[in-house]
Amino acid sequence: MKICVLMKQVPDNDSAIILSNDSSSIKLNDITWCTNESDTYALEEALLMKEAHGGEVVACSFGRESSQQVIKDALAKGADRGLYISEEESDGFDILSTAKIFTQALKDENFDLIFSGLQSNDSGNAQLGLLLAEMLNMSHAALVMGTEVLNDTRIKVKQELEGGWFQWTELDLPASITIQSGLNKPRYASLRGIMMMKKKPIDIFDSSQIDSTGSKNKIFLDKMYIPQKVKETTFIEGTPDEIASKLGDLMINDIKVF
């Protein structure tokens, strides 16, 4: 199996997200970057499949220069090769244009499988892997919670549905699947893995020549802003002792928990 894993660099959960002065982007100075969470599960699933059935795992990321770190982390965990798609300013609003760039970068690789996270924690489109399925003429499944290789031409996946339901789906290869969190336990890089990483190649694909904006249907950013609250929250303040006693009082006397 020749597997591509799409991995995006996003702000980590604890980074403060602050708007730029013109409300068109967020301030990047204080952000700590990490790999998008569901993408780490996608990588693990690809590595497990390679270990069981052989093949190659290629980690692919598109974005600012620092995105190469995502690829390096994947190489240290066991991916064989990196593919970095360069981009100076990535706004991420138009996922369809982004998918066209990926299509150009991936089309000659003839992957059997593309694994991606089900959704990125920053832009949250939940689309890239599925757009690529259509553009690269692959079968697809979203929200995958388990995989099984049936034979050289077919895999079986467990898809998550709402409210605790699941569905089995069989996919002819090549296939692009989006991975939901929790289906495996992502590994940590070993010391040896980190040493090996330095010897593994990262190919660079320059996206600047690609015109991905040819469509007559387009999306533009109007503005970004902090959401307004819909509910009036009563904040309980004070020292930890004061808070504990106020909250205890509230629970006992107002909410009547006992």
């Binding site: 007559k216 387009k218 999306i219 950013l221 503005k223 970004m224």
Partner: peptide, 21 residues
């Protein structure tokens, strides 16, 4: 104008459309 949440609900964004959507 289409409004959606980004950064895990920490920011809202308004988008404009040209053509179909």
């Amino acid at each position: 104008i289409l409004t959606r949440q980004i950064y895990q609900g920490k920011i809202n964004t308004d988008l404009k459309v040209e053509g179909s959507v």
